[in-house]
C-alpha cells in the first residue's frame, strides 16, 4: 500500500511537471489532472486509471487529419476550433509502457465527438533536464500528416 502511494505520488509529480509545461510554455488552458476514467459510459466509468491523465485545450487546433486538410483547402475553410486533448505523462528513463497499458488507457477514454475520428492521446515524455517532448498516439492505423 505504501509502495502504491509512493508510485502514485511519483506519477502525480510527473503530471505536475507536464501540466506546468503545457500551461506556461505551450499556453494551454483548462488543464485538469484525472485519476479515474473520464469516460461517461461503458464499463470503464469511474474506474481508477493506471496512471494519471491530463486534459486541456491547446491554443490552436493541434492535429488535423490529412484528409480533413485536403477538404479545408478545397472549401477554403479554417482549421476549426481547438479540441480537448488528453495527455499521458511519462518519464523518459522509465520503461513502463506496454501495448496492454496503452490499450486499456484508450478503452478508458471517452469516444471522440466526431464518430469518424479515431481516439488519440498526447504522449508527454519528460526528460531529466525537464525537457518535455510530445508525441501524438492514435488508436489503430491513422495515416501520417506528412507523406
Amino acid at each position: 500500500m505504501n509502495m502504491g502511494t509512493r508510485t502514485d505520488s511519483r506519477f502525480m509529480h510527473l503530471a505536475d511537471i507536464v501540466k506546468v509545461n503545457l500551461e506556461l510554455e505551450q499556453d494551454w488552458t483548462g488543464l485538469a489532472v484525472h485519476k479515474s476514467s473520464p469516460r461517461g459510459d461503458g464499463d470503464c466509468d469511474g474506474q481508477k486509471l493506471l496512471r494519471p491523465l491530463l486534459s486541456g485545450l491547446p491554443p490552436k487546433r493541434l492535429y488535423i487529419h490529412p484528409d480533413d486538410q485536403i477538404d479545408m483547402i478545397k472549401n477554403l475553410t479554417g482549421p476549426g476550433e481547438s479540441e480537448t486533448e488528453w495527455v499521458l505523462p511519462l518519464h523518459q528513463s522509465e520503461n513502463p509502457t506496454t501495448i496492454s497499458m496503452l490499450a486499456s488507457l484508450f478503452d478508458s477514454l471517452p469516444n471522440p465527438p466526431v464518430p469518424s475520428r479515431r481516439k488519440r492521446i498526447i504522449l508527454a515524455s519528460v526528460h531529466n533536464d525537464s525537457t518535455v517532448v510530445y508525441y501524438i498516439v492514435h488508436d489503430g492505423l491513422v495515416k501520417p500528416r506528412q507523406n
Partner: peptide, 11 residues
C-alpha cells in the same frame, strides 16, 4: 491485435 500510430506532435 491492438496497434497504435505515433507521430511527433510538432510542438
Amino acid at each position: 491485435v491492438r496497434a497504435f500510430s505515433i507521430e511527433w506532435a510538432g510542438f
